[in-house]
């Protein structure tokens, strides 16, 4: 039974990872990272359930807190970018190259 949850989590993680690679809007890319972190949470919970251990559930809280901290910093950076250039597309951020 928990195998299906693990597979669902793997699918969500893959969708998130593909989103990072394919999408070009910083906000959408950031949401994809959050999707990946939630896939991790689902994996932890279902693995903990399958193993009969509370550790999986406990670890989820830490991942949640880290995700929240990332939201704070990430949105701040994206807002700073948007104020500067009226765009959140990473393709238009290309001054640094060589």
């Amino acid at each position: 039974m928990t195998d299906w949850y693990m597979l669902l989590a793997a699918a969500l993680f893959t969708i998130g990872a593909m989103g990072i690679l394919v999408r070009r809007n910083a906000l959408v890319m950031f949401m994809c990272v959050e999707l990946m972190l939630n896939a991790v949470n689902l994996t932890l919970v279902s693995a903990g359930r399958a193993l009969g251990s509370l550790d999986g559930q406990l670890a989820t809280f830490f991942v949640l807190v880290v995700a929240a901290a990332e939201v704070v910093i990430g949105l701040a950076i994206i807002v700073a970018i948007f104020r500067h250039r009226d765009t959140a597309s990473v393709d238009e951020l290309s001054e640094l190259k060589g």
Partner: peptide, 11 residues
């Protein structure tokens, strides 16, 4: 350039 570096590093 600093915010460009930040968003690239962050993502």
């Amino acid at each position: 350039n600093s915010d460009e570096a930040a968003i690239k590093y962050f993502l």
